[in-house]
Amino acid sequence: MHPAISVIFFTVASGAGFGLIFLLGLGFPVGGGAGRAFAVSLAGGGLAVAGLIASTFHLGHPERAWRALSQWRSSWLSREGIAAIATLGLFGIYALVWMWSGSRLQILGLLVSLGAAATVFTTAMIYAQLRTVPQWKTRLTPAVYLSFALASGWLLASALGNHAAPGPWGIALVILAWAMKWAWWVRAGRTRLADSGSSPETATGLGFIGKVRLLERPHSGENYLTREMVHVIGRKHARKLRGLALALGAVLPVAILIITALTNAPAPVNLLAALSMLAGLLAERWLFFAEAEHAVSLYYGNR
């Protein structure tokens, strides 16, 4: 699949933003007055909104994006839009009350957390629902998106808030998230298009005669389908990118968390861990798209 930069940035940034919002809704301790409450709310809301705005860049008609809120009965993309807007609205009220009165409304906070989790889940289901991409169609996909959102959100929260022991929790959440991703990668390695039961033989229905091979594409040039779904260039550096994702997304953040915990460094140093993880997740998300094999490639001779 074509790794669109806008969608990669959207899923990573929104994931971290909603992860932070989830933790704030649950009452993640943040000291200081209204200014601090404003800063941390702006970080969560800003990342979530920036991601959502980026996601409209890949639309052919962004001015009609409001229509995407109408089909929640059948469409995960529609549900995602509704969940995101509802969550951000509730979070806005939560943050305003917090800044105004200094009190954090518990029930409203729980609703915000529920909404944030639902938003990340619906984002993941946009991909996990697609039977045409066997590597994506698994419960592990929402598990990975949720655990990455939680881990990157925690790193941001621990840098901006006043949790007593952000280090051990942060390390545990980062490791949990990459364990999920590792399981996802192992499954994806075994669930390539060729393993899914679909083949040029089933795609053409000609398997009863013999082995099927594409002789000629419909046109000599590329088309929307080959650019969007038979995108193979992005896989060229897959091994290096996977190493980069693990180094920046897992090893470096854990190392920074250990150092800050041992040296009693000020909490904002954890921001480095958060930024490193987000950079690693950009590489991870690139591979999520670039390595995915779509069924339509069976009609075009390569995966």
Binding site: H58, R64, A68, L77, R131, V296
Partner: peptide, 20 residues
């Protein structure tokens, strides 16, 4: 005139029947 051009329908189709 209701299509936002998100392309998700083309992703969902195994036959490559939809083109932007």
């Amino acid at each position: 005139d209701m299509c936002i051009g998100c392309g998700l329908c083309a992703w969902a189709c195994p036959y490559g029947a939809r083109e932007m």
